[in-house]
């Protein structure tokens, strides 16, 4: 089966700067593919090339089996670099503009997407008065209005509160699972990507440095048990004594990388209490994006 997205040796240069460098990847139908990278990694430039907004310096892009110019845009929904709306138009009017430009003249699609994105209470509000979170919902509503086969989202969780992030995550999952929508999204939030994507491409300085499945990402993003005690030296000795290998951090904590410690942190707590230096903080932490990246890049 032909990939929904096929990038071949895609590059974009601005003078000497390679914003995207020799990027090749395929995204299959129904996948949720995340482009993960730090700010400036080339995620947005890649997405803009996917959408035909930026011409590649070299290489090719195909969406749904077609080149991006003129492009299969009736089957693609997108949200690029945060939401934008006509401030003097209401939510419904903004969606009506988007619908007309997609050749949809009925009101049904607008009403459906307003309800789906929980915008009913704001339907007659001017877009200029919306909170950032609701403006982001409006942007997503425009992307979903025409029930696209392919959804391209640049940092879709930006500006949303935790409940909003969870809601969007569930929406994207549902679109993929129940409607077979292929989703490509970019993010710099590793935990968000880990929860949502089925496959991840790690971009760094414009290059695809790693591509991995969601399961592989969980294995790659190291977890550790971070322990703090009032007497750190005594706690270190106590943990060594029961077979752990604590590592002292610059932040005055002990990190335990052992699977046993991460799986059963209560055993660590018991050992420390028994040694007379009970923990004041005991938490399983995951690599943040920077740490993960440094490891990926260094490797």
């Amino acid at each position: 089966m032909a990939p929904v997205i096929a990038l071949r040796s895609l590059s974009k240069h601005y003078g000497d700067l390679a914003a995207v460098d020799d990027l090749s990847l395929d995204v299959a139908a129904g996948e949720i593919y995340a482009l993960l990278g730090l700010n400036g990694a080339g995620k947005t430039t890649t997405i803009r090339m996917l959408l035909g907004m930026v011409r590649p310096s070299s290489g090719s892009v195909e969406l749904l089996g077609e080149p991006v110019r003129p492009g299969p845009w009736a089957r693609v929904g997108y949200l690029v670099e945060g939401p934008a709306a006509y401030p003097e138009l209401t939510v419904v009017e903004n969606l009506t503009v988007a619908a007309r430009l997609r050749g949809l003249w009925g009101r049904r699609q607008v009403d459906e997407v307003v309800e789906r994105l929980n915008l009913t209470a704001y339907a007659t509000r001017r877009a200029g008065t919306l909170s950032l979170g609701n403006a982001q919902r409006l942007g997503l509503a425009k992307a979903l209005l025409h029930k696209p086969e392919l959804l391209i989202l640049d940092e879709p969780a930006n500006g949303l509160d935790p409940a909003g992030v969870a809601e969007i995550r569930e929406l994207v999952r549902e679109l993929s699972r129940e409607h077979g929508v292929t989703v490509v999204l970019s993010s710099h939030i590793l935990t968000e990507v880990a929860r949502l994507a089925t496959r991840i491409g790690v971009l760094h300085r414009g290059r695809l440095v790693r591509e991995l499945d969601a399961g592989e990402l969980a294995a790659q993003t190291r977890r550790r048990l971070s322990v703090t005690a009032r007497d750190l030296v005594a706690a270190e000795h106590a943990l060594h004594a029961v077979g752990f290998s604590p590592i002292r951090t610059d932040l005055g904590a002990l990190d335990l990388m052992d699977d046993r410690a991460i799986a059963e942190p209560e055993r660590v707590a018991v050992a420390l209490v028994a040694a007379g230096c009970p923990p004041v903080r005991l938490v399983v932490e995951q690599d943040d994006l920077e740490t993960f990246f440094l490891r990926v890049v260094e490797s």
Binding site: L51, G52, M53, P70, W73, V76, V80, A84, L101
Partner: peptide, 9 residues
Amino acid sequence: KDLLALPTS
């Protein structure tokens, strides 16, 4: 950006 990748040219 909302006017650039649409069925309307």
